[in-house]
Design a protein around this nucleic acid. Sequence first.
DNA 1: TTGCATAATGACCAGATGGTCACTAGATGG
DNA 2: CCATCTAGTGACCATCTGGTCATTATGCAA
Lengths: 206, 206
Amino acid sequence: MPRKSFFQLNINKRNRIINAGLSEFSQYSYNEASTNSIVKKAYISKGSLFKYFINKEDLYFYILDYVIADLSRSLKDELPKLKGDLFQIVLIYAEAEFNWYIENTNKYRLLKRAFSDDNSSIYIKTMERYKLIGDSFYYKILENIETQILNWEKEKVLNILKWILEGLNEKFMKEADQYSNINDIKDCYFNELNQYIEMLKKGLYK
Amino acid sequence: MPRKSFFQLNINKRNRIINAGLSEFSQYSYNEASTNSIVKKAYISKGSLFKYFINKEDLYFYILDYVIADLSRSLKDELPKLKGDLFQIVLIYAEAEFNWYIENTNKYRLLKRAFSDDNSSIYIKTMERYKLIGDSFYYKILENIETQILNWEKEKVLNILKWILEGLNEKFMKEADQYSNINDIKDCYFNELNQYIEMLKKGLYK
DNA sequence: TTGCATAATGACCAGATGGTCACTAGATGG
DNA sequence: CCATCTAGTGACCATCTGGTCATTATGCAA
């Protein structure tokens, strides 16, 4: 947790530090990210940074918490909309998640980096810290959905859906800069996702 | 490419260097991997390493080439076995790939690291170098398979299959150390993969 | 204006990095 | 036994890292 002094800062400066951290940690892995670079981006001195945060790790997890809280809030706002059968709910959920990603590309990259397994010591600490979260938001939303209509083990169905969402998200986030209009890519994504869901429901064979 | 002197080394020493590189680059990202550490693992001096290789990047790509060649050879050996419809072929291919992974876990980790998008400069160079490979082996094998039986756009079917394979591979590679017998995990994997394929063929709905 | 408390600074530290190069040990040929 | 050569060495270099701390700047009360 940041030191008291950090929260006594005026909002402007605090945001400059947060944005500097976001920028650095979304571009570089934890070890490759440089506190010197963060300090420059935030227009503060090295000494100040370590007056506000205990150390680099403290800063990192503050930023990560911040991003996760932001995403969680965004997704929770969508909860009331989640109605219908499993696939309708997945569609709504995935669309909300992707919309947030495409509007917060650097936060998306930071999350992707933070939770992609590279068995570094910071990754292990990250897993410890967020063992409750991770997949669990996705599974929690879906676990109470009626599944009598399903022909298969629920866990496996959710896995398939999760892997397809991950693959599709990554595919579109890679192509993101090719779209001039942000709504174009959202439409495109949603359209393609719909197709995949149809394929899954009806089976791939004729 | 390594310098001539590297290939004049006796096999023992050459292998020590290759294994040291494999170990280091599978544990750490390119930037975090240390030539000092590689040198220690290989029981050679720092000066020697840079007599054999132009620089760290040269060493890295030699190791990466080596691993890719190894996997390619392994998969090519399986080519004659690839018979039947799309799903049978995917099953055989995936099994071969997974078997190689589980028998070469550090090479698997190295490949995963090398080809996971982190837009670092080494990643960009890696993409340049291997633009032909990447997914293409997977798609190349499957592109000539008859698909009249399919109800959907072939590319999308291949995507779904690819994403499920990736997800399943990662899931099992993470759990790998929980299995005492290597054949247990292979059986488990193959069994679960079969289920997913069945689900895809017949559709998730009742 | 003075005195004091707190905030901000950047030179500095020890340690690590990729890479070099003057040197040495050992083999080879005469 | 010497002379020559070359493969191997590790101290060394510049540069970077996360983190510290004596010094300075700032704001405020009296």
